[in-house]
Design a protein around this nucleic acid. Structure first.
Lengths: 114, 114
DNA sequence: TCAGTAGTTCGATCATCAACTAATAGTTTC
DNA sequence: GAAACTATTAGTTGATGATCGAACTACTGA
């Protein structure tokens, strides 16, 4: 009765859909956490991402990420392990993960000094 | 009575907000058109982007793009000219515009041949 | 001044989505 | 099998957003 936990094929990826999945601050934080920690679970991601939400909400976010094609879910017993689909995403949308995952500091105007 | 047509400052840009603006297929097409053609008007963008929508809808999309910080609007008489804020965006989110504006071909599996 | 053009705003509709509580499915352990 | 645990699903509510027609503002030029 549970989902197959399958994600779309590489040729089915849709950029607006992916951007929509990333447009939620919680999901963006989750993707960044995945980029940093690698494979993780629903419970662990809720901790590491610092999201203050219920399990069901986190589960919902993970479903949106999976169905957009951003993540892959590996079912193993009572656990589901989520990973970023780096290879696929880098092929279809080169530079996107990098641009989105790493915080860039605000450029502070510099005053020349000796 | 009309808007000031001002956009947020560089330090106010918010990535989820920008991704949300780009998550609409029509707005993504508009941004790509702007990247290709440079400064353009509401009417021209509606033609060049191939969006089948009314003026009011296009105006709404342009407002979302402007308020997200993606575009700048120059008011000149009866016209409003829209441009992509390349410099600002490339500083705050390096690689994002490139990843989002240029369509990458599907990689077709290759068979080795002599 | 009046008609025409460019673009915005208003108001309404319809769809989507985030969030929650509560219930359920499946696994592991006792 | 019962209990504990992980995670998903169902159902609801409230908010946001896409779209449109119509009215409106603002400028241009005859």
């Amino acid at each position: 009765m549970f989902d197959d936990a399958t994600e779309p094929d590489e040729d089915e990826l849709d950029l607006p859909t992916i951007l929509g999945a990333l447009a939620d601050p919680g999901r963006l934080a989750t993707v960044r956490t995945l980029a940093r920690t690698g494979e993780s679970s629903c419970t662990q991601l809720r901790i590491d991402s610092g999201l203050d939400c219920t399990k069901s909400t986190m589960s919902h976010h993970l479903k949106v990420l999976r169905e957009s094609g951003l993540t892959h879910t590996r079912v193993a017993g009572a656990h589901r392990y989520v990973t970023l689909r780096r290879d696929v995403l880098d092929r279809r949308f080169p530079g996107l993960l990098g641009a989105v995952c790493y915080e860039h500091p605000l450029v502070v105007p510099q005053v020349a000094h000796t």
